[in-house]
Amino acid sequence: MARRTASEIDPNRLAQSGSLGTLLGDARRYAGLSQQSLAHSAGVSIGSVAKIEAGRSPEPGFFLVARLAAALSTRLPGKVKQEFTDSLYRYFEAAR
């Protein structure tokens, strides 16, 4: 899969993302963060970020995802932030 830059990411795609890894990866790139800088901001390992984005962590812990989401949401503009938050909510509702 080709990597997209922030300018290539459609904010509306965040709301349509089918996987948590895709959602987090798209939001991270939209925010202009590397995996390393997101991991540092969230206080988690870069391996955790990489595994989630690659789909190798099928059920990451709620608090791990919450830390990543909090670190990302401070870097996203209003509409994109709301779509990201709504998508995360739908993801966790479906997982229950």
Score class of each variant (00 low, 15 high):
M1K: 06
A2F: 04
R3S: 14
T5W: 14
S7G: 08
S7R: 15
S7T: 09
I9N: 04
P11S: 08
R13T: 14
S17I: 02
S19F: 06
S19H: 13
G21V: 12
G21K: 14
T22C: 04
T22I: 04
L23E: 02
L23G: 03
D26H: 05
D26M: 11
D26L: 12
R28P: 09
Y30W: 05
Q36P: 07
H40E: 09
A42C: 07
G43S: 11
V44A: 05
S45Y: 05
S45D: 15
S45P: 11
I46Q: 07
S48I: 07
A50W: 08
A50Q: 13
A50S: 15
A50Y: 06
A50F: 06
K51H: 10
G55F: 09
R56M: 14
R56V: 02
S57N: 15
P58C: 12
P58M: 13
E59M: 07
E59G: 01
P60Q: 02
G61R: 07
F63H: 13
L64C: 00
V65Q: 00
V65R: 00
V65F: 00
V65K: 00
L68Y: 02
L68S: 01
L68G: 01
A70P: 00
L72V: 01
L72S: 06
L72N: 06
T74D: 11
L76R: 07
P77G: 09
G78D: 11
K79M: 11
K79S: 13
K79Y: 02
V80Q: 12
V80H: 09
V80Y: 05
K81L: 08
Q82F: 08
T85R: 13
T85W: 09
T85F: 13
D86F: 08
S87V: 08
Y89N: 10
R90W: 14
R90I: 00
F92M: 08
E93W: 15
A95D: 02
A95F: 07
R96L: 10
